[in-house]
């Protein structure tokens, strides 16, 4: 350790303070591979610090951007729709209330809407038949066997 006479305040050699502030003469050499270990640890800490910095930046960015995002995506309170005016009472209703007349028979079944009717039977596929003849009118053969597709029918 160098001594700077211009910098250092004057010390009396007997001054006990000079003992305390004496230069360090002890040297303690590093253990083997200590340098590499310190460098590795420092690199890991640098990496961790960088990762933490990036994470914090992202979080801050998200906090800033989130209100803007929410403001743009939601349309805000829905604008009130103009209410429909009720039918005026001065004009007669073109379609008077179809109240059942006494004595009359209401036949709601007589005018069903075709779309509302559900077919009761599901059509089943039919076997191929001779044109012009209904399959149920097919006449059995005299020998009692059913006619095949290629067998001519006898009238």
């Amino acid at each position: 350790m160098t001594t700077r006479a211009d910098d250092r305040p004057e010390f009396d050699p007997d001054d006990p303070i000079a003992v305390i502030l004496r230069p360090t003469s002890d040297l303690l050499g590093p253990p083997p591979r200590r340098y590499e270990a310190i460098r590795r640890t420092a690199a890991r800490r640098r990496l961790l610090r960088a990762a933490a910095g990036v994470g914090l930046s992202c979080a801050a960015l998200a906090l800033v951007a989130l209100p803007f995002h929410l403001a743009t995506t939601s349309d805000g309170p829905a604008s009130p729709a103009t209410p429909l005016a009720p039918p005026s009472a001065t004009h007669p209703s073109p379609d008077p209330d179809p109240a059942p007349r006494p004595g009359g028979t209401a036949t709601p079944e007589s005018s069903p809407t075709p779309s509302a009717r559900v077919p009761e039977t599901v059509p089943t596929p039919r076997a191929p038949s001779v044109p012009g003849q209904a399959p149920d009118e097919r006449t059995p053969l005299r020998d009692g066997s059913a006619p095949g597709p290629d067998t001519p029918l006898r009238q």
Binding site: M1, T24, D26, L27, L28, G29, P30, Y35
Partner: peptide, 17 residues
Amino acid sequence: SELFAALYPRLAGWCRR
């Protein structure tokens, strides 16, 4: 590396005191 070689022994010696 140079800084380590120059300062570590002195710093560690100071710590040992």
